[in-house]
Amino acid sequence: MDILSFFEQHMEMTYVVILSVFLGIEVISRVPSVLHTPLMSGANAIHGVVIIGAIIVMGEAEKDNYPALILGFLAVILGTLNVVGGFVVTDRMLEMFKSKKNK
């Protein structure tokens, strides 16, 4: 059985997935509506972690495998955009909230 053997081989991963699902739900179950947008933006930056996959693709590609190199290169650029842009935009939003309170 493919599925059973998969679980046996990837026991830890399966646990990680299931626990992460519950953790994600728990962590933000009570959030004031004012923070919905920054939180969405912050979560958006965090899934930029996909950049790590892009780096691995790029780093494992053979030197003459141009299709893989080009696609990987593009993936690294896009992933970095997601990460850097995501965190900076979130910070700018939250900066607004803070400066208001100081005034």
Partner: peptide
């Protein structure tokens, strides 16, 4: 969730947790 798929492919725990976390937190949000 798409990022978490990458985590599976490369057996990469940080992609997996990050991706799934955003997947579930994003759904709740």
């Amino acid at each position: 969730v798409a990022a978490a798929c990458g985590g599976f492919l490369y057996n990469n725990p940080v992609m997996l947790t990050g991706g799934i976390l955003v997947g579930s937190a994003g759904t709740i949000l």
